[in-house]
């Protein structure tokens, strides 16, 4: 009973669910374009990538300019550590001037030892208060990136995060509040019970609803309970 603005919430959820059907493709394209632009913005970069992560750090979407990025990135998520995960988790940019002199992420460094990756810069994608992923650049030579690359990438990341958070709707169903879920469920129960009565008694939807209300009134119970009984197969009372 303690719901505020149910209508607003409902329309937002429906808009998000509709968005969900459209956004898979949109997010993918946006992420790819973004990675391409990031790659071109810093000289010496051999590949750029964008990863979108959910609240638990699982990858929901990603875009790459080159295979090398895809490999180096996949390894991060397999190892559960790496510059991008750190950038995402700490919400701070990460600069790796030379991977061979780095002491963080031992497992990941070991795993990418065979790849031509020497410097990395990664900036978190922060939309509002939420960290939604990371943007990263990889280079084959050491000392390709410095503080100015970090600043540049951050400038890039800010509007990108806002844009991506608007088109990223993969969490929409989880955001439905329990109240709204219960509401939609009970509405569905009532409507199904109406359908059962319509078929069973050959009556209109209005007449079926009227019957259910009548019975709920007579028995002083909630319409949902009466409806559940109809669905369970207990015949609705005759008169």
């Amino acid at each position: 009973m303690a719901q505020q603005l149910p209508l607003d919430e409902l329309s937002t959820v429906i808009a998000r669910i509709q968005g969900l059907l459209l956004t898979e493709e949109k997010v993918h394209t946006a992420v790819r374009l973004l990675a391409q632009a990031a790659k071109e913005s810093v000289p010496g970069t051999i590949g750029a990538g964008v990863s979108l992560l959910d609240a638990r750090g699982r990858r929901t979407s990603s875009g790459y300019t080159d295979r090398i990025v895809s490999q180096a990135d996949a390894t991060q998520y397999e190892c559960g550590e790496g510059p991008c995960l750190t950038a995402w988790a700490t919400e701070e940019p990460v600069l790796v001037r030379d991977l061979t002199e780095e002491s963080r992420w031992p497992e990941w460094r070991n795993a990418v030892a065979g790849l031509p990756v020497r410097s990395v810069v990664s900036a978190p994608l922060v939309a509002g208060k939420e960290s939604i992923g990371a943007l990263k650049l990889y280079a084959a030579t050491p000392n390709t990136y410095d503080e100015s690359s970090v600043i540049l990438l951050q400038l890039f990341a800010a509007p990108a995060a806002t844009l991506l958070s608007h088109i990223q709707a993969s969490e929409a169903p989880h955001r439905m509040t329990q109240g709204l879920q219960a509401s939609l469920y009970s509405r569905d129960v009532v409507n199904r019970a109406c359908g059962v009565l319509m078929e069973r008694l050959g009556i209109s939807h209005e007449a079926a609803l009227h019957r259910l209300i009548k019975q709920a009134r007579d028995e002083n119970t909630a319409l949902q309970q009466i409806s559940e009984r109809v669905l369970a197969g207990t015949p609705a009372h005759g008169a």
Partner: peptide
């Protein structure tokens, strides 16, 4: 009124809150 509407919607109401 908002709470009433939500319950009404929950039991199959078809008219908007407004």
């Amino acid at each position: 009124h908002g709470d009433l509407w939500l319950r009404y919607f929950s039991i199959g109401g078809t008219v908007g809150e407004y």
